[in-house]
Design a protein around this nucleic acid. Structure first.
Ligand SMILES: NC(=O)c1ccc[n+]([C@@H]2O[C@H](COP(=O)([O-])OP(=O)(O)OC[C@H]3O[C@@H](n4cnc5c(N)ncnc54)[C@H](O)[C@@H]3O)[C@@H](O)[C@H]2O)c1
Ligand SMILES: NC(=O)c1ccc[n+]([C@@H]2O[C@H](COP(=O)([O-])OP(=O)(O)OC[C@H]3O[C@@H](n4cnc5c(N)ncnc54)[C@H](O)[C@@H]3O)[C@@H](O)[C@H]2O)c1
Lengths: 213, 213
DNA sequence: CCTACATTGTGATTGTGTTCACATTCACAT
DNA sequence: ATGTGAATGTGAACACAATCACAATGTAGG
């Protein structure tokens, strides 16, 4: 039960277990083994067991894990037992796509606020959310129970908006701009940089090709 | 010059160096040190030097790196000295956002084909690209010099389309669906799973909070 | 030509995450 | 109640990546 140091990759995998288990449950599975879960997630059984072992003993030796109870345990661990409230800043190409993505809600994330600074967008409804004036970000986020802010503003605006979020007491930020955010250590930041991922893919496909020739 | 084993993170960072150097060049810098480059990228100087050292000796001791020539060397290394041709499958929320993102071209990636299977979308132009019938994916990709395919189709269609891409000889795939792709080892696959990233952020912000209390 | 200085390039070290392999434990049949 | 089979839980080994710390090597100035 005592919290050792948990690899950060483990948390990501726990979420994937959660997703896969929900799916297996829907298909009527009641008991799952680390082997089954590993196959579904394309990883090794030992990884599944070790990941879970950081948080306790959830299985029955010789049998496996009770899918229904495991999924609840995992939800608790990764704090997804309550709905996660998300705020979105920047309703452009990416922001709009996110607002229309209904699957987030099934996974426990709900975009409850959206902001933009373009007057012609403020007041519009996208998905089920009304776009608010970015000028109000601070007071709106400060007061409400927002767990996570998604940043989808243009590169040049990113660090300026990030500073406002900091003042508003945001706890974690997911940004789509090629990073450059320097935030205090108590604010979690993740940047999704598609170009970096593409560059890696291109390089790897060239190199692997070479190795075979 | 001999290729040792290069960490996969190194390639991603090389791309970021490439991006930062281009920017520094535009600002008139001619010489950059590992220290400067590290500061811009928010990493440590030793990391910069080690990353570069996998591929040769590009700097001058006591001085630093010539920005212009380094950026060209890096481009060669990560195969971004020629334009990378990208095909996009699935022109929904995400696909549309990608097509409108003009910055890709500045970084060396060009979306040259787009596919969808929805008859009402086929023939439309988004960005500068005409949406083609997904039925033609195989022949179209087979013949042209596509380096990378981006998959932005609904979850249920993902593995079906992936199989077609395999037959078409695609070398690497970037998918936005929560994975589940099992491809032969010679096809590079990366999945971007926003929910996983969000889950990690939420968990970390909760745990860090606890540690401080 | 030699010295002072700055910064690179890298072997050694540390840190982190994955995988192995097996002792442990449980359900069930006999 | 006891043995058998099956899958867990985990310390130890391994693999990989980040960082350190310093020798190597360049420039510039006298
Ligand atoms: N679109 C893509 O496919 C794509 C791909 C990779 C990276 N990105 C990155 O994602 C980010 C967003 O991209 P996009 O294509 O959605 O941009 P976009 O220009 O379409 O949308 C940005 C939105 O932010 C709003 N905005 C600007 N300044 C603001 C401010 N200070 N406060 C609040 N809102 C503000 C604008 O009004 C606009 O609606 C960029 O950093 C971009 O580099 C986008
Ligand atoms: N939109 C988001 O913000 C978001 C966020 C996270 C993950 N995702 C994932 O990204 C993927 C795409 O999401 P989206 O919101 O863009 O979906 P979408 O439904 O808006 O678009 C999917 C497009 O693919 C087309 N399509 C369907 N089957 C096809 C086929 N066999 N061949 C070619 N085209 C086909 C559809 O006609 C549609 O245009 C999904 O897997 C989704 O889970 C999306």
């Amino acid at each position: 039960m005592i919290t050792k140091r948990v690899p950060s990759e483990t948390i990501g995998r726990l979420f994937r277990y959660f997703r896969s288990l929900s799916c297996l449950l829907r298909e009527g599975e009641e008991i799952v083994s680390s082997k089954t879960l590993a196959e579904v997630c394309h990883i090794k059984p030992a990884t599944v067991r070790k990941d879970l072992s950081y948080f306790g003993e959830f299985g029955t030796r010789g049998v496996g894990y009770d899918a229904a109870s495991l999924v609840n345990k995992i939800k608790k661990i990764i704090k997804l037992d309550k709905q996660i409230n998300v705020a979105l800043v920047g309703i452009g190409n990416i922001g709009r796509a996110l607002l229309k993505h209904s699957a987030f809600e099934l996974e426990g994330f709900k975009i409850v606020m959206a902001f933009d600074n373009n007057p012609s967008k403020i007041g519009d409804t996208v998905g089920n959310v009304i776009i608010e004036d970015a000028a109000n970000i601070r007071e709106r986020i400060e007061s409400s129970g927002i767990h996570l802010v998604i940043l989808a503003v243009p590169d040049y605006a990113t660090s300026k908006v990030a500073k406002v979020l900091q003042l508003a007491g945001a706890k974690s930020i997911l940004s789509f701009s090629p990073c450059g955010l320097s935030m205090p250590a108590d604010i979690q930041v993740t940047c999704i940089d598609l170009s970096v991922e593409m560059a890696r893919l291109v390089y790897n496909s060239c190199v692997d090709y070479r190795e075979k020739v």
